Computed example of a mutant assay.
Amino acid sequence: MARKPYRALAGIDAKALASFQAGIRKRYSDDQILAELRDSAERLNRSPTMREFAADPETTVHPQTVIEHFGSWNEAKRAAGLVPRRFARREELVGLLRDLGEELGRIPTAKDLDERRGSMPSKSLYWHTFGSLSSALREAGFDVPVGEERLERAVEQGVALARKLKRLPKFADWADARRDNDGLLTEWQVYRMFDARRGAWSTFQFLIREQLGEDGVEVGSDGRLV
């Protein structure tokens, strides 16, 4: 049985309500709302979620007001030049890479993305959407050799193994891990990426350490994660 509407609601004049709501929306212009979104992103150093925006003590606009003006939270962020953190469209991600490459005058790297966390999507979002950053770069029109993608994949796998071991993986560690996870490149595939020359594995460990450092993980001189 349907519940009867409250008397207070049933007695509302629809035209008067619509006029009132329109007046409320007019308290903020689109430009004012977009400015608040950009300012909040600058304070947070990332594109804000609705919850983060509402919790920002310096914002004066409620997230629902933002949605009423632009139709959705993500459309408002797009209008503000911010990247939706989880629901960016594929073409948006590609376009942002092209713009970044034009700004830099070269092919963007994972480090470039990390340094622009407030305005660029994370490298993990590119990895999740395209399979790798190299694949995303190729789709954006950059000439990225296939070997670069394999090395990128090896370093990502090396970082994951280092986190698990709490230290940089040795050649034997990789062989052991490969027996339990055939999704890993083989230790010899990794070794040959560096032309199997002397110091090849330590060069690989260096790249893993550099990536861990970019992720905020410190590695001691003994190779252990701090």
Rank of each mutant, 00 (worst) to 15 (best):
D222N: 10
R224S: 06
A88V: 03
N181H: 01
D30R: 15
S19G: 12
F87Q: 13
R106H: 06
P169F: 06
R179G: 03
S19V: 07
V219T: 00
K164R: 14
S221V: 11
K170D: 09
S134G: 15
E102Q: 14
L97T: 01
R224F: 04
I12Y: 02
S119Q: 09
K15H: 11
R198M: 07
V217L: 05
V83D: 04
E139G: 04
D195G: 00
P5I: 11
L207Y: 04
E103H: 13
L207T: 00
D173Y: 08
Q211D: 08
A22S: 15
E210R: 13
V66K: 11
V226K: 14
T129A: 08
D31F: 09
G220R: 11
G71E: 08
P63S: 13
S47K: 06
F194S: 02
R167C: 09
R198A: 10
R51V: 12
R43P: 09
L9A: 12
L100Q: 02
I67P: 09
G141S: 00
S221R: 12
M50L: 07
L165A: 06
A80P: 08
D195F: 02
P145Y: 03
A79R: 15
Y28I: 09
V159R: 01
L125M: 12
A200Q: 03
M120T: 07
R38M: 12
M120E: 09
W174K: 05
R78P: 12
L93R: 02
A200K: 00
L17T: 03
N74H: 11
S40D: 13
F204I: 01
E148Y: 00
A177C: 07
Q32I: 10
L168Q: 03
D215P: 02
I24L: 13
D215G: 08
E218M: 08
T60C: 08
A54I: 07
V155T: 07
Y126H: 10
A160D: 14
K170E: 13
A162Q: 03
A110N: 08
G213A: 04
Y28S: 15
A136L: 03
E156D: 11
